[in-house]
Amino acid sequence: MTTLSMAAERVRARSGARTFLSRYARSRSAVVGAIGLLVIVVCAVAAPLLAPYGPTAQSAGSLLGPSGSHWLGTDDLGRDILSRAIYGARASLTVGCGSAALGALIGVPLGVVAGYLGRWTDSVSMRFVDLLLAVPTVLLALVITAVIGASRINLIVAIGVAAIPQFARLARAATLSIRDRDFVVASRGMGATTPDTMFRTVLLNLLGPIMVQLVITASLAVVVEAGLSVLGLGVPPPTPSWGGMLQEARGYLYQSPTFGVFPGLCLAITVFCMDRVGHGLRIAVGVESAGATTRAAI
């Protein structure tokens, strides 16, 4: 490749990024969502700096109301609710993003290979996907965590496995639609090997839809993780997680009705931000609405 064409490539990439951003910024709510998500990520990463207390430090009396030293009060063991909520972002984000990434890492290659090779490879992998899709996510996660135990990694595995079908179907459909288009056929004709063709050419064209699906899956996974925690099957205590805090708060619905409010609010804000970011990405990369909006209660 000549220097000139490399420079041209760079310019195109830069302007691509600019179009992407300006399209994204067209939705004001998407910008709000992105900023909100950024704040949550910062909270998770810099939790030790931001949280006034340690997540497991039992500092004061239990079930105190909001006060100057404990802005959101304390929980049943006298731990600071604000600090635990800040640390709790870690569990939600790691499980959310981890399982979305896992789903993509398995689902996308599966879909691309199935779509590209067709025939029995396609049949076999799509039957597998049908199977995963047919079993409800929470049930699948219930069984997997019962077998391998509940820990952050195991939750990622459990929820990630359930996320495979969406990625596989998406990747397969996209692969099918571009498999026989000129540029793919051309790169094949130019002597590129089969794996190369699939994973470079095809995959590059899939980046947009995959990004959207990643965000959608992550927001779903955050909710599923919290749902499992509410049943007592999430990240084991004393590690704080929003779902786990809700579960603890359930013991004190009468005494301290405010205990359960803040962790739920954190969840709702995160889901809102992720939903908006997904919306912005959809506009930016020009993908039609996918399955996210049709999620029902878990």
Partner: peptide, 9 residues
């Protein structure tokens, strides 16, 4: 944005 189980609580 509100998870159904939180609403339930």
């Amino acid at each position: 944005a509100i998870p159904s189980f939180w609403l339930a609580l």
